[in-house]
């Protein structure tokens, strides 16, 4: 059975948006770094668009190598300061007043498209699993939530175009303005997800387990709980993503030393372990999409202001997590 809205479509649409951004950047004569910036977004677009074709043309291992080279090139361009912001940021102030008159015409309905996204996603993921036309399922059966999100975003885009009497191309132009404000941090979540994969393949979990059993007595509950919770926090701070740290620390520490050896409640241990990871998310610039991008979008003077404000909350919640695990995880 085939599907209409699936992961391939999502990747291709993302790639097309990035390709248009690269094209607009290259066409922008006033752009201070138009060649390298356009190349950066073109290379990023190619990771979404051409992986299937390359896979089919040159095979698996060569494709992986080509993308490895592309990732290094992306890092070099960004690292050497080749990524600049377009001329639209300078002219934005002039356009802003026109935008404000338009917003006052539309009124509160301006929030409707944004609200449609969560509403339609939840509705579709609960109700539309079996919807199909002939042999075509509406939504990807394996990635139901993501397919629902894709369809919801497309609906919201149409609603926004209808509301503002504007074109989808204008949406891409505005995307480019946001993407320029975010800069290279935009590609960080993907790179960090890859890093998490590298940690798992490198068997970091086993290494941590042998290190922990070397340093601490496995019967000492407090030390193992401390290692698991603080380890989740620290590894998340390094990787920028609690979901990347979770398999490493849970397979290394929580499963053998807490759940199997001490018969701790697995649901409680993994839940609180993940929340300890989130405490790390609050304190690290590596979680750029949460901590650095908003600082850029809000045009704060200090890039790390958001992290500084979050640190006391993160540490207090972390202490609560450790206490909760000590109190409730173990059978009486």
């Amino acid at each position: 059975m085939n599907t209409l809205f699936n992961m391939d479509l999502m990747l291709y649409l993302t790639g097309i948006i990035m390709l248009l951004v690269a094209w607009m950047t290259w066409r922008d004569q006033a752009h201070p770094k138009r060649w390298t910036s356009a190349l950066f977004w073109l290379l990023f677009a190619s990771t979404f668009l051409f992986s299937d074709v390359l896979f089919w043309l040159v095979g698996k291992s060569l494709t992986y190598r080509i993308y490895g080279v592309i990732v290094v090139l992306l890092a070099l361009i960004a690292g050497l300061g080749g990524l600049g912001s377009g001329s639209h940021l300078v002219t934005a102030a002039g356009k802003m007043s026109a935008g404000i008159t338009q917003v006052s015409r539309i009124g509160r309905k301006i929030f409707l498209p944004a609200l449609l996204i969560p509403l339609i996603t939840v509705f579709l993921s609960l109700a539309a699993k079996d919807w199909h036309v002939g042999h075509w399922f509406l939504l990807d059966q394996k990635n139901l939530t993501l397919a629902s999100l894709l369809l919801a975003c497309l609906t919201a885009l149409l609603a926004a175009c209808w509301l503002t009497r504007d074109t989808p191309l204008q949406a891409v132009r505005e995307s480019r303005r946001l993407i320029d404000a975010i800069g290279w941090a935009l590609i960080l979540p993907q790179l960090l997800a890859m890093l998490g994969g590298v940690f798992v393949v490198a068997q970091t979990g086993q290494a941590i387990q042998s290190l922990v059993s070397l340093l601490f007595h496995p019967e000492n509950r407090l030390s193992i709980v401390l290692v698991y919770c603080l380890g989740m926090t620290l590894l998340t701070m390094i990787m920028g993503n609690a979901f990347a740290a979770f398999p490493v620390m849970t397979a290394g520490v929580a499963l053998p030393l807490l759940i199997h050896a001490q018969h701790a409640n697995p649901a409680l241990v993994v839940a609180i372990g993940m929340f300890s990871g989130y405490c790390g998310t609050l304190m690290t610039p590596m979680a750029a999409n949460f901590n650095i991008v908003p600082a850029a979008l809000l045009e704060l003077k200090d890039n790390y202001q958001i992290i500084k404000v979050q640190i006391p909350t993160a540490l207090a919640v972390l202490i609560c997590n450790i206490c909760l695990m000590m109190l409730f995880a173990f059978p009486a």
């Binding site: 397979a251 409640n265 993994v270």
Partner: peptide, 28 residues
């Protein structure tokens, strides 16, 4: 998270149970 526990031989944990044990941290 449940998928990870299932892969490692713990099949009795439902997503809702993990959600339930999130309440204390959420309150804190």
């Amino acid at each position: 998270m449940t998928a990870f526990l299932h892969e490692n031989g713990i099949t009795t944990v439902e997503p809702l149970t993990i959600g339930l044990w999130s309440i204390p941290t959420a309150l804190c």
